[in-house]
Simulated assay, not measured.
Amino acid sequence: MSKNMTINYLEVPTSNIAATKAFFTNVFNWSFTDYGEEYVAFSTAEMEGGFYLSETLSLRANGAALIVFYTDELEKTQILIEQANGKITEPVFDFPGGRRFHFTEPGGSEFAVWSDN
């Protein structure tokens, strides 16, 4: 697959870099590289990106794009998120093609998780 004209890197705001790193390490097993006190890069098998320190967060209510994760086990993933201090902002609901829920990570930005199960 060509990298030409594809999304190459994702940057997301956070109000707390340390809490965000801990959350994504515990729930999604991401690894991080620190670049000073206001930026941390992450790397997964599927993508690369970073979190930057900001008072303005990524929330749909503010018009932000929603980043959605996929899981085979929706309820298990929700438990992991809650145990890692994520907050469920929209409980599980059905939509055409599956089910999903929304959450904020400890740094305050909003994400979603969906499953076709």
Rank of each mutant, 00 (worst) to 15 (best):
V27N: 00
S115F: 02
A45H: 00
N4S: 15
F111D: 02
I7A: 15
A65K: 00
N85I: 01
G97F: 07
A18L: 13
F101A: 04
V68W: 08
E55K: 07
I88W: 02
N29R: 00
G63Y: 13
L53W: 04
F69W: 14
E37V: 07
A45V: 11
L74D: 02
V113N: 02
F24T: 07
Q78C: 14
N62G: 13
F69S: 07
S2A: 15
F28Q: 04
A84H: 00
I81L: 11
K3P: 03
I7C: 14
E82P: 03
S43M: 11
Q83S: 13
K87I: 10
S43D: 13
V68Y: 09
G86A: 06
N8V: 13
Y52S: 12
Y9N: 14
N62T: 10
V27R: 03
A65N: 11
F95P: 02
E90R: 00
T20R: 01
S31F: 03
N26K: 08
E75D: 15
R100D: 07
G86D: 03
T104R: 00
L57H: 03
S15D: 04
R99S: 09
A18Y: 04
P91G: 14
L66Y: 05
E82F: 09
S109P: 05
Y52R: 00
W114Q: 09
I79T: 14
I81R: 02
S115C: 10
S15E: 00
S31Q: 11
S58E: 06
G36V: 14
I17C: 01
K76W: 01
L80T: 04
T77I: 09
A84D: 08
N4K: 15
F51S: 01
N16E: 09
L66C: 09
E73F: 10
G36F: 08
F103W: 04
M1E: 15
A112Q: 06
P13R: 05
T89R: 06
P96D: 13
T20G: 01
P13H: 05
I7H: 07
N29V: 08
V40L: 01
V68H: 07
V113D: 06
W114I: 07
L80H: 08
A65W: 00
T25D: 12
V92N: 04
E75H: 09
Y52T: 01
F93E: 08
A64G: 11
D72F: 09
D116F: 10
L53C: 03
F42Y: 09
E105W: 03
G63E: 13
F93C: 06
S58Y: 13
A84I: 12
F93S: 11
M47G: 10
D116V: 12
F93M: 05
E82R: 11
L74S: 05
H102N: 10
L80N: 13
W30E: 02
N26A: 13
I79S: 06
A45Y: 05
A112T: 04
F95N: 04
A41R: 04
N16H: 01
M1R: 10
S58D: 12
T104K: 01
T56G: 09
T104G: 06
N26E: 13
S15M: 03
Q83I: 09
T71C: 12
F42P: 00
K76R: 13
I79C: 12
L59E: 14
S54C: 06
N8D: 08
P13Q: 03
F95Q: 07
P13F: 04
G108A: 08
L66H: 06
T6I: 11
N4D: 15
